[in-house]
Amino acid sequence: MNNMAFLIQKTLIYSIPLLIVAMAGMISERSGIINIALDGMMIFGSFLGAEVVYMLQDAGILSGNPQVVFLLAMLAAAVAGALFSLLLAFSAINLKADQTIGGTALNLLAPAAAHFFIKVLYMQDKLVMPKDIGFVILNENIPEFMKPFFDKAYISTYIAIFIFVVLSIILYKTRFGLRLRACGEHPQAADSVGINVYKMRYIGVMLSGALGGLGGYIYIATVAGGTCNADVAGTGFLALAIMIFGNWKPGGIVVGSLLFGLLKCLSSTYTSLDLNGDGIAILKDLPLPMYFYNIVPYIVVLIVLILTSKNSRAPKAEGIPYDKGAR
């Protein structure tokens, strides 16, 4: 049981950033804007989040309330991501620029800016949040079956899941969601019934930026152990892959990120993982180096894609700038 709990905890930690950032990509693409800048938005958000934590620590504010600090940092990261995404929205929507170029520029801009400010502000190359900040919630004395979800947990996990569910409902069950999706499928038709395509796409991109920034901060606070070095190890691109894997749908994204998180977790814990509880880690004794386990998640994703490829389908109008005059 203990091992199972450990596995679930770890899987959740790996999956949550992917889940929320893949959702970020989905919202933007569903509104018709390709968001290849997820990596950049994550980096920008993570930097601002870490910066907020650092400043609060420095000023000695809220030192007894790590969860409040965490919440504030997440909020800051989301706001930063949303503001940063305005750059993409402006170039893609108003100036009808190639969305890949805009996204690539943002991917270059975010680490450059983060590195620059970290260097200027702290005269070092990375920002390490203090270890004793206590973001982890410990609940040693709860029943065993609840431990995977409530012991050694992060408040960000619940928040991310909550946001994910709410946004999924909004996208599929409300008038707003239908309109947003219409702008990604056939903007001319949407415009003809009085929907402001530009506005909808702006909302899509900014929501995407907010989620991307939030996901970036969650990533460095949980997976990366509190170090912000203006890099998220390509998690934004992985999330993009998860989004495509999930067929631009929330359900698919949940499956994709959980699957990937689980495999990633296996690859990082195979040396100590005791699957059947007899005290022996079986995988460790196999003559395979860690590189093999690192490859497994990517291979599995490819195999699943090959098996399910027939019904793959992207939003029809994504990547195409909306031009009112075009037919």
Binding site: L87, S91, L95, A97, D98, I101, G102, T104, A105, L106, L108, L109, P111, A112, A113, H115, F116, K119, V120
Partner: peptide, 18 residues
């Protein structure tokens, strides 16, 4: 610091989209 050139390159790429 050395990251300024990366910033400027990013801005140029951003503008090249226009």
């Amino acid at each position: 610091n050395e990251y300024v050139s990366a910033l400027i390159i990013a801005v140029i790429i951003y503008f090249s989209g226009f």
